[in-house]
Simulated assay, not measured.
Amino acid sequence: MKIGFLTVAMGNTKLEEIVEWSSKVGFETLEIATWPLINERDFSSTTIDVEKFDKKEAERVKALFEKHGLTVSSLAYYDNNLDANLEKRARVNQHLKKVIDAAHFLGVELVGTFIGRDITKSVEENLKEFEKVFKPLIAYAESKNVRLMIENCPMVGWQAEERIGNIFYSPELWREIFRITPDSFGINLDPSHLYWLGIDYLKVVEEFASRIFHVHAKDVELKRNILHEQSIFGHYGTNAHGKSWWVYRLPGFGEIDWSSFITNLKKVGYDFVVSIEHEDPVWGGDLEKSKKGLLMGLHFLKKFV
């Protein structure tokens, strides 16, 4: 397996600087952030501007990565593809197509996104919206030799307080979604979300092995003293994700059993990328702290891959 990271961790640092630093310190691959320059998402950045991306720029980027001995694991654009506001939905869907185009120019096989949710509708109704919206998006990606994948973050409170914002957070939903999608549609598997939701993050690896295209390395710390007083619905006091009883951490600073998780991935034949998604508030806030955090995550994960 190769260890990389999502470039959101370095903000809008120029691609050249990110690639040079990453190669120097021992990363092997990068998950490239491709949000619009102007967007409403937290934890987002624009490492590559797909609005201006063409074959000539792709050749420049490929040469840069080759020079430094790195690869691109995927392009990342996690936004609400089922937005209740149809104008916003159309903009997100269209930008996703531009990300797919950029991946095609680069020869990158994977693009990561969210399904999202129409917050005015039930989960069951959103599954129907999903089929309507994603059937053409998946077909478009396939026509460009690109596979779409979804991160399993529930995005609680994203569009409305206390409500799930991304209908791709549990094995039950994955089964239903994979029942109606081709094999080219898969998961960017993040164990941190499964853990605080009470889902067995080790067990899902075997069942969904063929749909695991990419893996996010993010840990999670549960504040049990707060959980015991507030219950899972507690909202008094917040962290960056709108909750008070779980905090996302760098690998090794939370409760994920990385040895068992990576061993399970190896058992089912996964041998691609483990990509650090740095949302750790202790090691965030500025570029130098983020770099230190990424290095700690890299050194920790090297023991297992």
Rank of each mutant, 00 (worst) to 15 (best):
F27V: 00
N188G: 08
L301T: 11
H68D: 04
E207M: 08
E162K: 11
E16T: 13
L250H: 03
E206I: 04
P251W: 01
K55W: 09
L75G: 01
H228Y: 09
E162S: 10
D190I: 01
V111K: 00
E131I: 11
I3S: 01
A84H: 13
E20H: 09
L110K: 01
Y270V: 06
L295N: 12
F168G: 01
R175G: 02
K267G: 06
G157L: 03
P281Q: 10
L70Y: 04
R60N: 15
L70P: 00
N145M: 11
I18C: 05
R147Q: 15
I262M: 07
G252L: 07
E40I: 09
K52D: 08
K291W: 07
T29I: 04
A160K: 15
L173V: 08
S231F: 12
I48M: 02
Y248V: 04
K223W: 13
H193N: 06
W35D: 07
A58P: 04
D190T: 07
E131T: 12
T71E: 15
E255T: 08
Y140L: 07
K62H: 11
F53Y: 06
E288N: 13
Y78E: 13
V205L: 05
F53K: 02
G293T: 10
K56N: 14
M149T: 02
E206D: 13
W245S: 02
R117V: 05
D79A: 13
W196P: 00
E131S: 14
T71C: 10
K2S: 12
F114D: 02
M10H: 10
V204N: 00
W174S: 02
L197F: 06
G297F: 00
V273A: 09
E279F: 07
T29M: 02
Q230L: 14
E161Y: 14
L227A: 07
Q159I: 08
R91G: 05
N225A: 15
W158R: 10
V25Q: 11
L137Y: 06
L202E: 08
F253C: 07
R91P: 02
H278M: 13
E131L: 14
L202C: 08
F253S: 10
G165H: 00
D118N: 15
Y201S: 04
D219L: 03
H193L: 03
N145S: 15
H104Y: 15
F300R: 03
T13R: 09
K88R: 12
F178Q: 03
K55S: 13
I48K: 00
V156R: 12
F130N: 03
N152E: 11
W158G: 05
K56T: 14
S290R: 04
N12V: 07
D101C: 08
P191A: 04
K62Y: 10
G254Q: 01
F261R: 02
S22I: 03
H68S: 03
S22M: 02
P191F: 01
N145V: 12
L301G: 06
G165N: 03
E131W: 13
K88Q: 10
E125V: 08
